[in-house]
Design a protein around this nucleic acid. Structure first.
Length: 284
DNA sequence: CTTGCGTCCTGCTCGC
DNA sequence: TGCGAGCAGGACGCAA
């Protein structure tokens, strides 16, 4: 499940390979993954709307969203959802078509005619490709409801955003309008590192809690990005390699196992309708 | 307004 | 061994 670290690791590989390159061809194999209101506004979906015939001018990220921009300021936002991934392969290499490959882009590399193929693959189809017409359209329509970036969150911004909500802190962390980029894995990891139980109500957190939480969010995400994210099953970097952060998870997926800090058996339950794991001793 | 819950979708795991 | 139920969850729509 790609969260901020997975998307950022993907973005870095992608940018290194396709930034400044020309898109020769775009093929949409499943129209309904191109989910965009703009499509309806603009009428027909054309390859040019997905970058065909243009250069890649930006490869950015906001929260969990991957942003690819083309000449003229238009572009697309890839949401990976649960099982989505971006694969980058040599277009000349013979290989079987991966199942659930919904869109692919053929990209010129400028080196002796070899070409790359970028593929959007998403079995569960919780993800999709959203089109924007300009940087303003991107900001105002696709990114407008996102809170501040989790990678750089500070205690003040965190407190201002959370206010005094009467819901579990984990539910607030999963809310992209509060902070952008955190999902189920990194919510559990950050809360463990901050020593805060996931079911603590936001209103019950004090300044010390928020300080530790903001810091743990930043450090957890930084470490995870460096590791290429967490590969449970689906996540792969564009070159096919897995992320290795799962090897050093302290909370997520460790229900019933000994706490890596104190040795107590890790507890788990549903919080915010998501499976949640924590340590009763280390988190208060 | 805030919060909570059902829905989408496929593939994997588990139990009988 | 085979098969069906249960589970995983990001974002969104709707209800209270």
């Amino acid at each position: 499940m790609p969260e901020l670290p997975e998307v950022e690791a993907i973005r870095r590989q992608l940018a290194a390979s396709i930034l400044g390159r020309s898109v020769e061809r775009v093929r949409v194999h499943r129209r309904d993954v191109v989910r965009d209101l703009a499509t309806r506004r603009l009428g027909r979906l054309s390859p040019g709307m997905l970058g065909a015939g243009q250069r890649v001018r930006r490869v950015d990220r906001r929260g969990k969203q991957l942003i690819v921009g083309f000449d003229g300021g238009h572009g697309l936002v890839v949401r990976l959802g649960m099982s989505g991934r971006i694969e980058l392969v040599d277009a000349g290499r013979r290989r079987s078509v991966p199942p659930h490959r919904h869109v692919d882009w053929t990209i010129e590399t400028g080196r002796g005619g070899s070409k790359l193929r970028m593929e959007f693959i998403d079995p569960r189809r919780f993800g999709g490709v959203h089109l924007f017409q300009s940087p303003e359209d991107l900001e105002q329509r696709l990114l407008v409801n996102l809170g501040p970036e989790a990678t750089t969150i500070d205690p003040k911004a965190l407190a201002a955003r959370l206010k005094a909500g009467r819901r579990p802190i984990k539910a607030a962390l999963l809310d992209q309008g509060m902070i952008a980029g955190i999902g189920n894995i990194y919510a559990d990891e950050a809360l463990f590192r901050a020593g805060i139980r996931p079911d603590r109500l936001v209103i019950d957190l004090d300044a010390g809690d928020l300080n530790r939480l903001a810091k743990s969010i930043r450090t957890t995400l930084a470490l995870a990005i460096k590791a290429g994210g967490t590969t449970l099953r689906d996540h792969r970097l564009p070159d096919g390699s897995p992320g290795t952060f799962g090897l050093v998870h302290l909370a997520y997926g460790r229900s019933g196992e000994p706490c890596r800090s104190c040795g107590a058996i890790m507890s788990s339950d549903l919080v915010a309708a998501r499976s949640t794991t924590w340590c009763d001793v280390c988190q208060a």
